[in-house]
Amino acid sequence: MTRTAGVTGPLPDIGPRRDTAPPRLRAVKRRRQTIFRWVVVTAVGLFFLVPLLAMLDFSTRALSGRRIFKAWQTLFDPAKLAKDYAPLWDGLKNSLALVVLTVVLMVVILVPTMTWIRLRVPWLRRTMEFLCLLPLTIPAIVLVVGLAPIYRGLSNIMSTSAIWLCFAYVVLVLPFAYRALDAGLAAIDVRLLSEAARSLGSGWGTVMWRIIMPNIRTAVVSACFLTVALVLGEFTVASLLNRQNLQTGILLIAAADARLATAIAVVALLLAVLLLLVLSFVSTGRRNRHSRRAARPAEA
């Protein structure tokens, strides 16, 4: 910042005094802006850091104030977790199964339909967009009220197992997955690609699986990541429909062992950061390849 002032400083002999004032003024303003920026970032940063550090402290402190690392030892001891903290273990298993089911169901339901609507029935696109974004205005807690009777019926037909929550989770993730996939489909020429594939004799299955999917890979991956994050963090629907997942398990554990629950929260947060890093890596890696490809004709 100060360097800018040094560069613009020795230029004044172009005009009268009036011209030299703005750069110096600007330098002062710039410096003030830098200070302002650091004050804001530090203050807000503290507000966000303190609870995170407090979680680390809380998870390793006995009531007497001594350090104990029992919670963290338990956390990295799957056998003990499975034996002594059964709700957590069951919840984790259910949540992992739900992640897989929800991701598969989401892709199977959304990708072919969205592609088909773009190709053949564009007049349905508005309707589909409206329906997919609708869950944004229907809070999960409201959806649960309407889902309760449906799930009562479902548990008679199928079972009361937690894995059927995947149906509700696909609805919850719909707006986010739709936006991600829609951006992916908008970036490629669906009609051109599918017509080329069809004219070379491939069926719709091949078009979907070998032409469209690889071309919107990044969008599918980010939709999947959003789904994973949502399913692993979902509490409202599971808890109110009396199904056990990771979050309800953690809440049960928290009553018995607050330190362990807090340690889990720390790990969950770190995993979320990791997930985000992978996601941004995937998308920027893709973008770089695109720009490189775009740059090639210019070089030639």
């Binding site: 963090g233 979050q247 953690i250 607050a258």
Partner: peptide, 20 residues
């Protein structure tokens, strides 16, 4: 995205009766 029950734990650990 850090809502949910984890956030409740974070603040209990910070400002609860035994919080840091």
């Amino acid at each position: 995205q850090f809502g949910g029950i984890m956030l409740a734990f974070a603040f209990i650990a910070t400002l609860g009766s035994n919080g840091t």
